[in-house]
Design a protein around this nucleic acid. Structure first.
Lengths: 144, 144
DNA sequence: TTAGTTATAACTAAATCGGTTATAACAAAC
DNA sequence: GTTTGTTATAACCGATTTAGTTATAACTAA
């Protein structure tokens, strides 16, 4: 019913623009690009800073990456802005593994294990895509 | 920051219990197993009914599956209870592909494509796991 | 000193969530 | 036909998250 927050795709977009044009990327500029509010941008950037992916030039504006674009994966960004304050589990699984009913207990443990594997499939994919790859793809589609 | 709803793991658990002991599975019984409220159970079952995965004996209680356990995949359940009222996209991607800035436009399109592929990795995995497989695993861990 | 910027707190409106209560309808047993 | 146990569903609640906004303070370079 509910999607994840838009911070993840926005975070990717922000870092990509910073990679291309560091000094140009003020909060206002990025907000115009992403059609949102500068404070929303700065909140996302604050999370990316906490993950040591980016640094910001306070006062004067602009930002720059703290890693090279091929060393930043989409999983890094995902975890920086989407996985906070909890164990990182996407699915909301309640632990019934110590139920007095053995079937429920066993089922619960197996559901938990299986869903976490499903999540890992997604995260493994995100870990394989670097910011550089995304930039390459985008420039390639631009050239056509 | 936010996990998905607990309807998905609960829906799996509910269908598994129905598969094992159809007549026993009243709303009250299932609620005790999952440690929640009968109405919560019935809301989930209502979504599973809409997806034609289960039928319920109104008045007398109990439920039964409308497909065999090896023809119900976790993806079926996921889509029945977690993906409703929107296009099924997990990530909240805003369409910036018609931005006046060509870089932003191209980036947006590629972010969208990449994240949807990440989602597909997860859904493909869910599609490979049947309810029967989950039951087999659970009985196997019980036997040990 | 000024202008442009970042940092951050506080607040809002909207949506979703899990849960609860209440009411009506249903089906089988007696 | 009544009773009993159940399903179906609407209405509501409090908590939480979200994106956005406003306001204030601090920073940096010109």
């Amino acid at each position: 019913m509910k999607k994840l927050s838009c911070r993840f795709p926005m975070g990717i977009h922000i870092l990509a623009l910073i990679a291309i044009q560091p000094t140009l990327c003020t909060g206002d500029y990025l907000a115009k690009q992403l059609q949102t509010n500068p404070v929303v941008i700065r909140k996302i950037i604050a999370m990316l800073k906490k993950a040591k992916l980016v640094q910001v030039r306070a006062g004067v504006g602009g930002a720059s990456l703290l890693k090279s674009t091929d060393q930043i994966t989409l999983l890094d960004i995902y975890k920086a802005v989407e996985v906070v304050d909890h164990d990182g589990e996407l699915f909301n699984i309640r632990d019934e593994s110590n139920s007095s009913c053995q079937i429920t207990s066993s089922l619960s443990a197996n559901i938990c294990e299986t869903l976490n594997e499903a999540q890992q499939m997604m995260e493994q994919y995100l870990a394989q895509i670097s910011l550089q790859q995304l930039l390459d793809q985008s420039f390639h589609s631009l050239a056509q």
